[in-house]
Design a protein around this nucleic acid. Sequence first.
DNA 1: TTGTAGGCGTTATCAT
DNA 2: ATGATAACGCCTACAA
Lengths: 331, 331
Amino acid sequence: MTVTLKDIAIRAGVTSATVSMVINNKPNISETTRKKVLKIAKELNYYPNVIARGLATKKSNSIGVIVPNLASSFVVRVLQGIKSTNRDIEYTVQLFDTIGQKERESQLFQRLARERRIDGVILISSTVTEEELNVFAEESVPSIIVARRCEHLDSVYVNNEQGAFDATEYLITKGHRNIACITTRKQGIPTEERYNGYLRALRSHQIEARSDILFDVNDDGMEDGIEIFDRLKNIVPRPTAVFVPAGDMVAIGIVKEAKREGIKVPDDLAIVGYDDIPAAEVIEPALTTVRQPKLEMGDYAINMIVDKIEGRESGIKHKELPTKFIIREST
Amino acid sequence: MTVTLKDIAIRAGVTSATVSMVINNKPNISETTRKKVLKIAKELNYYPNVIARGLATKKSNSIGVIVPNLASSFVVRVLQGIKSTNRDIEYTVQLFDTIGQKERESQLFQRLARERRIDGVILISSTVTEEELNVFAEESVPSIIVARRCEHLDSVYVNNEQGAFDATEYLITKGHRNIACITTRKQGIPTEERYNGYLRALRSHQIEARSDILFDVNDDGMEDGIEIFDRLKNIVPRPTAVFVPAGDMVAIGIVKEAKREGIKVPDDLAIVGYDDIPAAEVIEPALTTVRQPKLEMGDYAINMIVDKIEGRESGIKHKELPTKFIIREST
DNA sequence: TTGTAGGCGTTATCAT
DNA sequence: ATGATAACGCCTACAA
């Protein structure tokens, strides 16, 4: 039924070794047989069995992409960056998600590292520790982590601290002194860094950070923003600005609730989000926010991992990308 | 370096055949050797080489998911549906996108169908013809198409015609007679069906369709909506409602531009979108729209394809899911 | 330039 | 209950 090298070999009057060499463009094949073999291969509509090839070469020509959650627009956008370059790359992408199930995570890593199903791994924005990622190094499966810097692993990430600094400083130069900060601890390192950037900006302008206007939300939805605003509005002195490293959706919730309560944005309350999701342009006033170069991150990630797999690069590489501050109407 | 069946076999004093049987829970193995083998396997931290296994069993335990474009929130959401069920399923997901490159598409199908890299294929919302999908049938690779009904292929889809009918009829019962329709032809069958539903609703209420308020946009972004509104506003008699099967982003553009021009939504102009994207709740007034059960579609798709692959179902199956009309503030 | 032979790690069919 | 042995389809020395 399916055409194999052997089928071609028989018809061409050669052995499958020869056919293999032709298919793989190896040198030292006479033009005559090359032509003949290629012709027959085409007639028979031959496609190599990649599984068999993988067994022989010990390469699957496939890379794994592990994501925490496909519901995150950040993750999807990075994925898109990975895929779009991948057009010209002869690697297949296998998608895995861990949906926060902590125990399954390291199990998944084990399997991926040892089952020889993939040649390398891209890990997007996760809360795993570096230790848990060691399996890949142990099995010498190239790996790279996106959205977070890791000392002992290749990584592609954004300067979150600086992004937050820029945003906060912008608010300060606009005259704000009481700037609330809405963050989300459980999201891990990146939000932590953003918080630090916020603090640094305050410090560099001799403004004391007020702990009563620092909030920690659990999730990053619009409802969280609504709830936060309701807590925020009664605090005195009331902040005149809010920086929301927790994400744009939370910021949007705040905008909505503020408007509903008759608070004018940005006049009474300026708001800066983080991420530049599509809805940031939809809300009125349109949201000022910090954009991360998500597509670019994906792009770097796939290229770096392919280089690693093919042995073109060695040593740990870090790629830091800049954020971009997008000024719209909410400030 | 890597542990194989043979390694285990040697230490256990049996052959790799026996070890294989133990690993795969085959019957007719003495408890003693089973215990012994399992113990050694664990000590050595053995994981089967799935590539080798695939060659032997002619199964890759992997399914391909082909998407036209990861930038579409519809596609991503269906993907999410596929992945979330997939947790308990022993199939890996390989992601492919075709980014509209028509010529590459059938080439991709050829490869996927013949390279034995995947056991089955899920195709999300694409404009390919049934003919192009024949390769899968020819190579007896189970396949299923999502978001569109195909006579000769398994499919999971939504009753777009009815969804559009419901939306339009709702507008009619609200007293509207001049209802514009913004569609997007190039998106293929589903939009076509929605248009038909719109027409049917008009007919069933003896309203004549006006061709001067039927618009065709090329893309489905906010800008398209803005542009459409500017064309719409000068038409007499001016429509009092707009149904936008082209999608929520276009509808949002219309809302925004209408507001900017001082037209009151919904009082002066009622607007209904299609898809229920996250931003539909963000815009003010919140958008009335037609929701498709995207997660559910992905869920059905993965389960159907797995059943097919494992030979549990045969014959062509179609699963039609209902849309849900979401009433918000724009009507 | 091409053929021979062996191996990649598993599974599956026979014997034993 | 277990062992030999032969696939699976391809690649790669090495030999000719």
